[in-house]
């Protein structure tokens, strides 16, 4: 366990933000920390980053307490990549990297070596001497990321690292993060991009009302919430002549919906029943349960703000 948040409590002026949230990250793991707006995930992450002092509970990084004395020293193993483009627009990429590298304790040759690495890693080496304010959004995002990992942290907090960038830049950023994980870093990702979290993360923690309400791999969450059944949607060439043949299946005009626990075994029977009804299948979609479905199942469809 490289990072552990236990029984975290925090209130702002009597309004609770965290009410006992607990979660942890294994070494080399990529964890998604998900939740609706105001659920408490940002407060959790800020507590880890040292920007929020908990009313109760603890935060441990590599076995060291992050809420007590000596936390600043312990936090050197932590990298923070904020959602804001927290770089200086009137500095060049190299100058930004040098500044944040020094803020995080790098000096001398190691600093310059890491800055050169970061410029290559982000694909900004050719434009390292240009002011950041002239960069595209994707380039600024990559620089923002590099400034947080320059000092080779063992645990990296990522707050919406791909927000506001085009698909190509997004793809590049995920590749960069996957590379960090391969090199041994543990990642904590907070995002509202559930499809991306589903595809890149090893494990998921869902927080709501200041508490962790579910955690596990995607398969575990699906099993424990919406179940593994697939949704099959058929589009017919015409409405069925004999709808009675499709009893137990939702049929609306030319569209048929059904939930199948075992697609391999049950799909053939469904198609036979459609044929018997006098219609022909024009199109067929099989949908696996998604993180999106799990998320809505756990947190509801009510607007939070």
């Amino acid at each position: 366990m490289v990072l552990r948040v236990s029984d975290a409590h925090k209130s702002y002026g009597g309004t609770p933000a965290l009410q006992g949230a607990s979660w942890s990250v294994q070494r080399g793991e990529w964890l998604a920390l998900l939740g609706p707006n105001g659920a408490g995930k940002t407060t959790s992450v800020r507590a880890v980053a040292g920007r929020v002092r908990l009313d109760r509970g603890s935060v441990e990084l590599l076995g060291r307490d992050l809420q007590g004395p000596g936390a600043a020293d312990a936090r050197r193993k932590l990298g923070v990549v904020p959602q804001n483009l927290a770089v200086y627009p009137d500095l060049t990429a190299r100058e930004n990297l040098l500044a944040f590298g020094q803020h995080n304790g790098l000096t001398g040759r190691p600093l310059h070596t890491r800055v050169d690495w970061a410029l290559e890693w982000t694909g900004l080496a050719d434009r390292a001497g240009e002011l950041v304010q002239g960069y595209s959004g994707g380039m600024q995002r990559r620089l923002n990321l590099a400034c947080g990992v320059l000092h080779e942290p063992e645990v990296i907090l990522l707050d919406e690292p791909t927000v506001g960038v085009d698909p190509q830049s997004r793809e590049r950023i995920w590749e960069m993060l996957a590379g960090l994980q391969r090199d041994g870093a543990s990642l904590v990702l907070t995002t509202h991009q559930l499809d991306e979290a589903q595809s890149v993360c090893d494990r998921i923690v869902i927080i709501d009302h200041g508490r962790d309400i579910a955690s596990g791999t995607l398969a575990e969450l699906i099993r424990d919430t919406v179940g593994p059944a697939r949704t099959v949607r058929l589009t017919l060439d015409r409405p069925p002549d004999d709808p009675d043949r499709l009893a137990g299946v939702t049929c609306e005009g030319r569209t048929v919906h059904s939930t199948l626990d075992n697609v391999a075994d049950e799909l053939q029977d469904l198609l036979a029943r459609v044929a018997a009804s006098g219609a022909t299948v024009a199109d067929l979609h099989v949908e696996a349960p998604t993180l999106h479905a799990v998320f809505l199942h756990l947190t509801g469809r009510e607007l939070r703000e």
Binding site: G50, R51, A72, R75, N84, L85, A86, F100, H103, N104
Partner: peptide, 14 residues
Amino acid sequence: ERGTLDRVLSSDIS
């Protein structure tokens, strides 16, 4: 406003 203050204070700087 830019967020760099938060970032700097998350590092070694008091």
